[in-house]
């Protein structure tokens, strides 16, 4: 009941009454299952702010609820104990085009919850950049397994964008970075020459057409 009151307070004056009721219902159920409620509230507020019809907002909120369930199941199957931040990051990754299987694969890297959460956000961002799931999960998995700092993970989208700007496709950019990172992990980091990122390699040179 207290959870429902909190949801109602956050939605008060921001969404139509029927949307508030729906989010309260879905949010209370989600919370009882250990799922985060913020993505539900955010989606409802976003839809109303954009002037979207209540029926469409309701559909979008229901979809988020389903994706939270999918993400939680995938993380659990991958061996991660329930973590609301990781589940929300998984939901974002699904929205960006990844699947429950992809999330499970990242969870199976054995990364801790904090690193995995960042990894899921980065994987979702890479998907949004057009990187196909196989190359996306391949790259983020290598980075997670190598135990690189979170800052190195966060640099991956910029590195991929840089390679794309030089003419690589998103798939080529991600695959090249994954190969370079795997080689670096196998042979140890190169000596620091005072430039670029200290951990993950620079983007690969795109292939000639």
């Amino acid at each position: 009941m207290q959870q429902g009151t909190g949801i109602a307070q956050r939605l008060a004056g921001r969404v139509p009454p029927q949307i508030a009721s729906l989010v309260q219902e879905l949010g209370t159920a989600a919370s009882a299952r250990g799922l985060p409620i913020d993505p539900l509230i955010d989606k409802a507020i976003e839809g109303s702010a954009k002037g979207v019809a209540p029926e469409r907002v309701a559909s979008a909120v229901r979809l988020v609820a389903m994706q939270l369930d999918t993400a939680a199941t995938a993380l659990r199957d991958g061996g991660l104990v329930a973590d609301t931040l990781a589940i929300a990051a998984g939901e974002f990754a699904i929205t960006a085009g990844l699947s429950g299987s992809d999330i499970k694969a990242l969870a199976r890297t054995g990364a801790n919850a904090v690193a995995l959460t960042v990894g899921l956000r980065v994987a979702g961002t890479l998907a949004a950049l057009g990187v196909p799931p196989a190359e996306d999960i391949g790259l983020v998995s290598v980075a997670l397994r190598s135990g690189e700092p979170v800052s190195a993970l966060l640099s991956l989208p910029a590195n991929v964008q840089s390679a794309i700007a030089k003419g690589a496709t998103p798939a080529q950019a991600a695959a090249g970075l994954a190969r370079a990172a795997a080689a670096q992990a196998a042979h140890g980091p190169p000596p620091d020459r005072g430039g670029g990122h200290p951990h993950l390699p620079h983007p690969p040179t795109p292939p000639h057409p």
């Binding site: 839809g47 907002v57 979008a60 974002f92 979702g124 961002t125 949004a128």
Partner: peptide, 17 residues
Amino acid sequence: APAIDDGFGRRNSVLTL
């Protein structure tokens, strides 16, 4: 910036920090 479907027929830009 990268963008994803917003669920309402539009796109949201994504910023991962």
